[in-house]
Nucleic acid binder design. Structure first.
Lengths: 215, 215
DNA sequence: TTGCCTATTGGACCGAAGTACAGGTCAGCC
DNA sequence: GGCTGACCTGTACTTCGGTCCAATAGGCAA
């Protein structure tokens, strides 16, 4: 719960009434008005965006995304509905919850999102479950959990094997033993995997393949 | 139910004993051994992957994904558990079910997945439902994507910050810049984080915090 | 005050990771 | 036959990661 400390929480809202609650959840938070978002910099930024009651959600979020770039964002709605939630997720939101949620709740949401998850909220989750029985609903989690298949497809057989090993945390020496080749050869494969996937080291590769990374 | 006809079902398993059952469910199915998956081509492909009893699931799936690319896959386990299911879903599985399921059951699973849904299985589904109804349970997705809360809770503030940075793939030098401290100090924090969480290097830490493989 | 924890830093050290340059075999293809 | 790509290995080198042995300083509690 405390791990949110390194994160810059930026709330974007017209209202100020919820400010104390937000401040309680994240002491280091910042507040911006929707009209005057400046370029948000830094690595660990989490944006909380409260939908204006009037106006449609899609328009507001499209606009928001242009303002904040690639930072993950969570949508707060004072009149949440499942339809609106789905709309938000399809526009890239990482979370959707009631604007009147308490501090503890917000922290939970943040924790989940910062770990790369989606925060659905109980109601929508219920529907998602229903959807496993009633297939007419569209997938929700799909876009999040999927892999970087496009990158991997360019690996050779051997490269795939070493990449998988790296993604599981093995050292070069261990991979060498496992595949019964020289550590030197492992390095060669690892190197070309880096090149093909455009990462700089094994950690980033692991994050990429495990679909976690942010950078 | 009918729409499964156009789909290429590919089963990947060491065992052959279940073959008749699978063939009954999907007459046009194909079988591959895990060691020799060739590039799977075609549009409508659904991959069924049976976990080997020994060896961890994460490793097998990471490997699988690299072999099959973007095709959706369903994991079959002869000893299914909720924990393993969760692990599979977080690695991109579209379904998780008992390897001994009957033909009719498999067809249901296929239907759901082909409609874009997720097949959770009754036990996990039950857990999700319970959690949505009884709010005193912690957020659902949390235990899934979230961490080793027990480990993290023993970190100090600073250690949490550097741990988070490491988990996001930053180098010591970058972390130092970001936190405005010496690289030497970063090393100190990183070191004590390793000790507290019992991992040997930053890659394993990243995997641990991101809740992926363990090996 | 004394002790403990935390944060900070230094220097030295060593092994792992990654790169540059150079080779070698083997298969398929024009 | 030449060409190409995947695979394998070697030497040598630089950089990074991680550890050991220190030290200083602030906060907090017995």
């Amino acid at each position: 719960m405390a791990r949110t400390s390194a994160v810059q929480h930026t709330f974007i809202s017209w209202r100020l009434t919820a400010l104390p609650r937000w401040g309680q959840a994240f002491p280091s938070m910042k507040l911006s008005a929707p009209g005057i978002i400046k370029r948000i910099s830094g690595r660990n930024v989490l944006v909380w965006f409260e939908l204006a009651a009037q106006g449609n959600a899609a328009e507001q979020i499209t606009w928001l995304r242009m303002a904040i770039g690639e930072h993950p964002f969570i949508v707060l709605s004072s009149t949440p509905t499942d339809e609106e939630a789905i709309q938000c997720f399809s526009l890239g939101a990482k979370g959707y919850c009631n604007a009147h949620s308490g501090a503890g709740n917000l922290q939970s949401v943040a924790d989940v999102v910062l770990q790369g998850g989606l925060w659905l909220g109980p109601s929508l989750l219920q529907r998602l479950i229903t959807a496993t029985v009633r297939p007419e609903f569209q997938p929700l989690i799909e876009p999040v959990l999927l892999p970087s298949a496009s990158v991997v497809s360019r690996f050779s057989e051997r490269e795939r094997e070493v990449a998988a090993a790296v993604a599981n945390g093995l050292s070069n020496k261990e991979i060498a033993r496992q595949l019964d080749i020289t550590e030197r050869t492992v390095k060669a494969h690892v190197g070309s995997v880096f090149e093909k996937s455009g990462v700089r080291d094994r950690l980033q590769l692991a994050l990429l393949l495990n679909r976690t990374a942010v950078s």
